[in-house]
Amino acid sequence: MLRSTTSRPSSPPELLLGPLWNSFLLSGGTAAVTLVAAVLAAYPLSRFQSRFNRPFMYSILCGTCLPVTAIMVPVYGLFVQLRLLDSLPATVLFMAATALPMAIWMAKNFMDAVPLSLEEAAWVDGASGLTALRAVVLPLMRQGLGVVFIFVFIQTWGNFFVPFILLLSPSKQPASVSIFSFFGQHGAIAYGQLAAFSILYSVPVLVLYVLVARGAGGSFALSGAVKG
């Protein structure tokens, strides 16, 4: 906290690297939490028949339709009451929750594509459900896991509104928010700095997108997400 007030205005490298590092923490953390929770949830949904499955998947689908900008006012109110404002872990958990519906949907579709027979062999050999998941299913859906992780990472990296509302101290804000300060008030814009920082900030997601699009053949997210 103290560091942020003393060293923030002057030194350019820190002005640049600090926010990018925060973006990395926020996006990496969110993608990791989302992936773990989504895979765990997808496993029983994909493998066991239950009365609970269909309603759950449909509410998840409904959840993907919730406009996140609409819930930011109540989320802010909730964070104030729970004293979670300006907390990076809490922001990570919130962003993971917003990414979860789509992630569970995608993870289940990828898991459905892994044949059940291999797993049954593991069960016969005495492996429990979660052991089979770790040893048999996950290695076979490596690519799908990568797609979900990168999908959430890109989404979080680019998000401006959520950290803009939930993270207050400049030392915790990600690049999307700190870049907004270059923009200044209308009229006094540091175009050179803005453009340079924008490029640096955009490169990681462009690279990640190309990586996934190459690997999974074009409309990667949509094949997992829209077609159901």
Partner: peptide, 24 residues
């Protein structure tokens, strides 16, 4: 018990999506 792995997701969704909607 088989449904146990769904719990982390359900908790996250309830706490951070359903609760704000209701609170709203």
């Amino acid at each position: 018990l088989r449904l146990l792995p769904v719990v982390p997701s359900v908790l996250l969704l309830l706490l951070f999506l359903a609760a704000p909607v209701l609170w709203s």
